[in-house]
Design a binder for these strands. Structure first.
Lengths: 213, 213, 213, 213
DNA sequence: GATGAATGAGAATTCATTCAT
DNA sequence: TATGAATGAATTCTCATTCAT
């Protein structure tokens, strides 16, 4: 009662947070390596060095754990994209830097997961159902990113940089499609193109495609 | 009397083919709904209205069944794309018609699966291993499609239609990225854009992006 | 009615018998190679070159098929032993020749099965139950052989050749124990002893053991 | 306080050992009753009163469980035989006491399994493969027993007790053949001979058979 | 809180047996 | 009569989840 509201509590709480973070990291790791079904709670726990049961003190189910990861990643992505956008001056620069950051992230494990993981995970009736139910969380963030891109595009149109006759949704949709690092992965497997060259040319193509006439 | 010699044989064989077709269809259905791991052989069988064991008379394992579906789909896709390309006259028309046929197929269940299924299925360490081993089959077909697109793009460059300074791999990679009907699905969920309008604008954007200067 | 009792009937019947014989042979072959559970009706049928269902026209179940084989083998063994005994003149010669014929048979596939098969097959609750029930058939033959051996031993005792103070059941039991070619198999794997030398020495040992004092 | 340091550890460990022992016992029981193939992991578990999955916490597979039983039994048998041999003074006494202990064990379930189980189990192509691979374990112990018997026989020969002209392998092979309690089982079913009388007479026969001339 | 042993539903696969053709 | 496709019970093994310690 007289206790400081956050002191002893928050010590425990901090430890708790740290452990949860470790679980999330380990889970993300295994998940990316093996996909949803080949990831066992056992392996996650043993990578963290804790017991299986402890995982369940933090997340009510394997499913919830995975959802938590995806949500967190979605948030991270939004943050990165928003920060990136803020750093660009022109509308084109803003979009270019998003392109660059996402593709660079392909080799930066802290970022590459953000785009890759959903592909690895989404394929399960269980999880898909959740995505629909959790619209409030996951979907929200995705929508926010789309809105951000759309606003940049609209700004560009208003400024006469981008083609007014091309519907913004098409522009935005194309932009997202080009963002998937899978294209580059496949490309890179066959012909060795340096990443920055790839991104540069992709940008050239994209901005020519949406350029005002 | 006038019957082909293979009559009695082919009767049995025809029934066998029909049943196999039913299994493949049911499996494809469940697979698309639920993904590889949540699809049980039991459910496939019961959708066809046969016993579990019967499935194993046609396919030695669940894995083989899925592989068969993917291979068949890859072949169908190649066939469709090749036929589509043949029907176009200019290089642009050829690519435009591929775009159209793939997106139209989105609502034609016989075609929509072709592009969607691999995404749902590929995410399992088991199956991914198979894809590497089966390179001779699956990968071959995919490579063939890429080669086809690339050759159209090269022709276009030679003819002065497309931008010679843009590397063909980038053009081709971008083209494939835009092909994924997922973009449209997401788009369509939010804003109601008619499919043909979507494809038309996407084509406009793409060809402006790769147009010769 | 007026038909010859055995003519058209017996043609069919003969073919039937022949086929049954083929089935029995194939089954015995596979059974010896793989044991009861690893032998599938499918494989038996395909070795004969007939359909699985046809096997069931001859034998109501896999179990019955195996029982039939064992019974037939028991009969063959009895026949061989009885013929062998008849050919010997002294009691010792009679037993010696049984020893020899059984061990020689170890390399004669037509005989080796007779002693080996029961060991391969008997280990299944199903079959053991049957052995008890079918006492009338299998057991009978075995008993008959034991009686035959016992009578030779009794004769030998009466003739003053064998030890009267050694109970016949012990003599007979020991004789049967020594008959199992498995001992020789194991022995032969380690140290290379020629079969006839083995049998000779085994006989020497046995007859010294039961010799009259 | 006075407790050994290993207390808490060893409590868990002890329980684990106890449960494992129960599983081994139940498995041995069912195995002896039904043979390898008719023994299901389910039944073993339900005899112990635990869930199927729990069996797999102790043994990675049904096969491993059975191997564990056989190895343990082989070890027990070796131990018993070695102890028995040590207690005898003359070479004859040593062999006699082995005979006695194995046959007595026929009614002592803790011992009878040792000789019976291999016969019930070995007949499965699966397991036979394992026996070859695991030569280092199972076979080793069997070889050790054979070596022990052989050395007793050799000693007896050197001491002038046993027949020098009879090859040791034949003597040893005959001894092992006579050891199989199956002979007695059959005998006992027909004529009621007391066990110790049986063993006494069998010994008389055997030692007369190998006696020096 | 943390643990990890125990659970048991569920999945893939096999194969003796049946029966329509 | 012969066939072999179809059946489905049974088996092994896995793993998310629970709960007594």
């Amino acid at each position: 009662m007289m206790q400081p509201v956050t002191a002893p509590r928050s010590l425990k709480e901090k430890q708790r947070q740290e452990r949860e973070e470790l679980i999330l990291q380990a889970a993300e790791e295994v998940l990316t390596e093996k996909g949803y079904y080949d990831t066992s709670v056992d392996e996650i726990a043993s990578r963290v060095g804790i017991a299986k049961g402890t995982v369940y003190l933090h997340f009510p189910s394997k499913e919830d754990l995975v959802i938590a990861i995806l949500e967190r990643n979605a948030q991270k992505l939004v943050d990165i994209v928003e920060a990136t956008v803020a750093s660009g001056s022109t509308n084109r620069e803003k979009l270019e830097s998003i392109l660059l950051v996402v593709y660079s992230g392909f080799f930066d494990p802290r970022i590459s997961h953000l785009m890759q993981l959903p592909y690895f995970v989404v394929n399960s009736s269980e999880l898909r159902r959740v995505f629909v139910e959790k619209k409030g969380c996951m979907r929200d963030k995705w929508d926010r990113m789309e809105a951000l891109i759309a606003s940049i595009l609209e700004d560009g149109k208003a400024a006469g940089e981008f083609d007014k006759t091309l519907p913004t949704p098409i522009m935005s949709s194309a932009f997202f499609s080009l963002l998937s690092p899978r294209s580059f992965e496949r490309l890179n497997a066959n012909e060795q193109i340096p990443l920055d060259e790839f991104v540069k040319q992709l940008g050239r193509f994209y901005f020519k495609g949406i350029a005002a006439v």
